[in-house]
Amino acid sequence: MSINTLQRKCKKLFRDPKNFFKDSKVMSRIATKEINQTNKIIREMNNHSIGKVFFNENSVINYDILGNIKPNNFSFSSVIIKERKSSLPKNEPIYANILKNPNNFIGFRENNIFLCDAGNLILDKFIDVREAFQNKNWISAPFSSYKNIFIVDPKNNLPQLIKSTSPFVFVHCIFTEKSSKDSIERCIKWSGKIDSAILHSSHDNFAYAFNRSHVFSSTIQLLKGIADLILINGSKPYDLLIPCFGDTPFLENIDELNEETHDIYIKINKKMNAISKTCTFEEIAMALSQSTSFVLCRESVYQRYEDVIIRGDLQQFILATTKDGLRVEVSEQ
């Protein structure tokens, strides 16, 4: 820098210090760096967070979901709904562990699993589902672009609400060591049957309440539980019928049955007695279970309701699968 240039800059500094720093290359570089850093944060938030669920000013549940974020592979896609602790999604507990997972599992790739922020009291306060569905937004199934919804430490009936928006969404609850016994009992009571739950080992006595459950005591086991559920509900090249209840004989027509569109095949061993028109569906399921010779179901169905099948609870199996919209074929011997 020449002496003349230095003198000119010094005069400008004393005469108009504000414009001096505004025009300086150093300040320009600092400003550019700050802008780039801000853009990076915004870009990172948009790439990992699909929005939030919250209560509006009228205390009615609502959501703000970004419609431009879609998974690369729907069959292995997921959303984790939890109360945010970190400003950056990539630093959020559980979600950060998933993204750092060293295995190249398709369900844990950044463009297949996203965060959704649960606003204040969203995981705690009872939700009036009928009131929520008066808002047409919920009828449009906001989470239908994703296969699995994992809700972390819910204490209310948010799982029921999200499950009610679409028959194609699988809702799973993650109960960490931070969940209390009372909050889990309240969630089960208010939400009814949930697809599956991942339970901390201190809550393993609640495993009976779910169609399928995973128990974990470490982060690695938690991630394995999440990955297993994503795989179970993912697409399969072959989804054949397998025995799940009763003594299944050799079936010459098994190939034909596999070609059919039903998910469950029930063979009854006797003609069922006439049932009163005033009976409940629970009573119909009980009567059907008492007349059953054997049951076949698709492998994906077996995995989804594994705990119920292992317990041998055929009535509950019929109730759960029909409630979830699975196709059932009943054949008389």
Rank of each mutant, 00 (worst) to 15 (best):
L123G: 05
K82I: 13
N135Y: 07
K136V: 15
W138T: 03
K90R: 11
E83H: 10
D128A: 11
N120F: 15
R130P: 03
S144V: 00
I80M: 10
Y95S: 06
S86D: 12
E110S: 13
I94L: 11
I127W: 06
S77Q: 05
E131C: 09
S144P: 02
I94T: 09
F126G: 03
S144G: 04
P102H: 14
L99G: 03
N120Q: 13
N112L: 03
F150T: 00
L66P: 02
S77G: 05
Q160P: 00
N148D: 10
L121H: 12
K147R: 14
G107E: 08
S86Q: 14
N73T: 11
K147Y: 05
N112A: 02
F150Y: 15
L158R: 10
N91A: 14
N148Q: 12
F105Y: 13
R130T: 09
F114Q: 01
N91F: 09
F76K: 02
R84T: 07
G107P: 07
D153S: 13
N91E: 12
N137R: 09
F108L: 01
N137M: 11
S78Q: 01
D153F: 07
G107T: 08
F105D: 11
F126V: 10
S77H: 04
I113P: 00
A96F: 07
W138L: 02
K90Y: 15
K85R: 14
V129N: 06
I122S: 02
A141Y: 02
E83A: 12
L66R: 13
N72C: 08
N91H: 13
N156T: 09
L99W: 03
F150K: 02
N148V: 05
Q160M: 13
D117H: 14
P154Q: 11
N103A: 15
I80W: 05
N91Y: 08
V129K: 08
P142K: 01
I94P: 03
E92L: 01
V79F: 04
N72Q: 09
S86Y: 06
K136T: 15
N103F: 12
K85S: 10
L88C: 07
L88S: 10
L88W: 01
N68C: 10
L115W: 03
N112M: 03
E83M: 10
N137K: 15
L121A: 09
S87F: 14
R109W: 00
P154N: 14
I80D: 00
F133K: 06
A141P: 03
K136S: 12
L88I: 07
I127K: 06
K70Q: 09
S144A: 06
L121Y: 14
D153H: 10
I106L: 13
G119S: 06
A132Q: 07
